[in-house]
C-alpha cells in the first residue's frame, strides 16, 4: 500500500521534483562559481564597446615616464632609509591596466567589473588603483573578467593612517563616495583636511597608497572615534584602472572580510 502510494506520487511528481532539484543545483553551483560563466560571456559581449586599446598604450607610456622619474628618487631614498632602519619597504608590484566594463550587479554591494582576468595575471586579492589612489581589491576573477570590491563597500576594510600624524585606524565603506575611519586610540591626532593613505601595517594593500581627505571629525562617537573621508577617486566616472599584484598577502578564505582588522590589531 505504502509502496503503491510512493509509486503514484513518483509518477505524478517525479519529473517535477527532478527538474526542481536540477534547477536549484544549477543555480547553487553558479553561485559557488561566482558567476564565472556569465562574466566570461559578458566580457566577450562588451568587447566591441570597450574604450580603444590606444588609450591603454597612452596610459602605459605616461605611467612609464612617471615611473622612470620616480624610480631614481625612490632608489636614493630607499638606500638612505634602509641605512636608517635596516628594513626594505614593500613594493606595489607591476601594474596591469584594465578597462571597466560593468558596475555592481546588486546595488547593496559596491563593485566594478573589469575586463582583465586570470588569463592576464589578475588574481583574487590584488589591489586596484585608479588615478587618484586606491579604489578596492579583486574579489573574484574569471579568465577574462574580474569583479572588484570597492573601498566604498560596507564589507570592505582597509588599514589606513593619517599621513600627518601617523594615527592608525580601519576604514570601512558605507555605500557612497564617503567612507568612515574608526581609530584605535581614544584621542587620535586627526583634523579636517588631513590626507589618508593605506597603512604600513596593512597586509592586503601596498603601503602608502593615497585614499582621500578627511571631511569631518567626530571624536565622541562610540565605540571608537570616527572620521568621514572623501575619496580622491571619482568612482562614478572611471574608465580605466590598474591592478597591482601584491606578493605578501596572506588571504585566508575563512576570515576574508574582517581579517584586516585582526591583522591590524595584532600589530598594535
Amino acid at each position: 500500500m505504502f509502496v503503491y502510494a510512493i509509486r503514484q506520487w513518483w509518477i505524478r511528481y517525479g519529473v517535477t521534483t527532478g527538474i526542481s532539484i536540477v534547477v536549484l543545483l544549477g543555480a547553487w553551483s553558479f553561485r559557488q562559481s561566482n558567476g564565472r560563466i556569465l562574466y566570461e560571456l559578458y566580457s566577450q559581449i562588451s568587447k566591441p564597446f570597450e574604450v580603444p586599446q590606444a588609450k591603454e598604450k597612452d596610459l602605459i607610456d605616461a605611467r612609464t615616464r612617471e615611473l622612470s622619474v620616480k624610480l631614481e628618487e625612490q632608489r636614493q631614498e630607499n638606500a638612505r632609509l634602509r641605512q636608517l632602519i635596516g628594513e626594505s619597504p614593500k613594493n606595489i608590484g607591476e601594474p596591469k591596466f584594465a578597462p571597466i566594463i560593468g558596475r555592481s550587479a546588486n546595488h547593496w554591494w559596491q563593485s566594478l567589473v573589469i575586463g582583465r582576468g586570470s588569463a592576464d595575471g589578475v588574481t583574487r586579492g590584488d589591489a586596484v588603483v585608479a588615478p587618484g589612489g586606491l579604489i578596492g581589491r579583486v574579489a573574484s576573477a574569471s579568465a577574462h573578467a574580474s569583479r572588484v570590491l570597492l573601498v566604498s563597500d560596507p564589507s570592505s576594510r582597509v588599514g589606513v593612517t593619517v599621513t600627518r600624524s601617523r594615527a592608525a585606524g580601519v576604514m570601512r565603506g558605507v555605500g557612497s563616495t564617503t567612507t568612515i575611519i574608526e581609530f584605535f586610540e581614544k584621542l587620535p591626532d586627526v583634523k579636517t583636511g588631513d590626507a589618508i593613505t593605506t597603512s604600513n601595517f596593512s597586509q592586503r594593500f601596498p603601503a602608502g597608497v593615497p585614499i582621500g581627505t578627511v571631511t569631518s571629525v567626530d571624536l565622541s562617537a562610540s565605540p571608537a572615534p570616527q572620521v568621514e573621508v572623501e575619496l580622491f577617486v571619482p568612482l562614478a566616472d572611471l574608465e580605466w584602472v590598474s591592478v597591482h599584484s601584491h606578493e605578501d598577502k596572506p588571504l585566508s578564505p575563512q576570515s576574508e572580510l574582517n581579517s584586516e582588522v585582526e591583522i591590524l590589531l595584532d600589530d598594535e
Binding site: 526542481s20 559557488q32 563597500d153
Partner: peptide
Amino acid sequence: LAGWAIGFLQDGMSEQI
C-alpha cells in the same frame, strides 16, 4: 523555486552574504 534559484544566481554575480 524560481525565486530561490534566481536569488542564488544573483549571489553568484556579487558578494554572497
